[in-house]
Nucleic acid binder design. Structure first.
Lengths: 148, 148
DNA sequence: ATAATTGCAAACAATTTGCATTCAG
DNA sequence: CTGAATGCAAATTGTTTGCAATTAT
């Protein structure tokens, strides 16, 4: 159902008097298809359909889409920001061993945010919360952590 | 009391048959002094004392120190990893408006980790937990969030 | 028609790597 | 002495920017 998001995109663009272009749609579709992806991953994915779509455009478009509120980004694991379509908010569990990113719906996150708000006056964006750790699979595989 | 950490460092190095050098001590001191800092910040800081100490060495040393377990790194806010001395573990509250990083001691983090462990079998590294949001000061200043 | 958007190529910044020199053990 | 560690400079990688050509409106 790519039509839905396309429409939503069009709408958002029109609202700001911006233009609806193929590349913008492709970038959004790629983000949606990936679930969560770095700019590079989006580039790769998008260039399958449109090899001429340049990285510059991907970067610019991601920024734009974020401003429009249709996607948002978090910083998981290492340096690269990870984009995902807005709305489908969740917590990320990032495994430091295998790098896998699992999405989770966690009740306690609210309690945590509440405490931080009360004690530090800090308004946590729960949607951008990501946890670093070791996933079940890796924990099973390597009971004794190695150096590297 | 920089003597303490110097000794600890020496010890850790010896244990692995590695050499104790001035630059390694300087890098560790810089990390300790900064509380939490990116490689670049460490470079800057370290080059005050030793202008010839090269970035390469800083990068290599941070990696080494981490392997030794005397420092660890997290990813706050944007891309750059942030290093801090191990032991003094805490949660980071990163303000997306002003970029300020506040350290917090939060009880609920344990409950959160527990839930994730129970439901997903994911072993959270609580020490690397960082929250994205808006700090008290910024919330007060700009009641109406802007686009950029 | 007209200005927004794109693609390209060059500019940039941050990090990594190879290698000759230096220095701790 | 001897190999580990450093400093330098060049190579990479990921991202940004300027500008002419393109294209949605």
């Amino acid at each position: 159902m790519p039509t839905r998001s396309a429409d939503a995109l069009d709408e958002a663009l029109r609202a700001r008097g911006l233009r609806s272009t193929l590349q913008r749609r492709l970038v959004l579709d790629a983000v949606a298809a990936l679930g969560h992806g770095t700019p590079e991953q989006v580039c790769e994915r998008v260039q399958v359909e449109a090899p001429s779509l340049s990285p510059s455009t991907v970067y610019r478009t991601l920024e734009l889409l974020e401003k429009l509120g249709v996607v948002s980004h978090t910083h998981l694991g290492h340096g690269a920001p990870t984009y995902h379509v807005s709305g489908h908010e969740h917590i990320h569990l990032v495994c430091r061993r295998c790098g896998a990113v699992q999405e989770a719906d966690v009740v306690q996150a609210g309690a945590l945010a509440q405490e931080v708000a009360d004690r530090y006056g800090f308004a946590t964006d729960v949607a951008h919360l990501s946890l670093d750790g070791v996933c079940a699979r890796c924990a099973g595989k390597h009971p004794t952590p190695a150096g590297r």
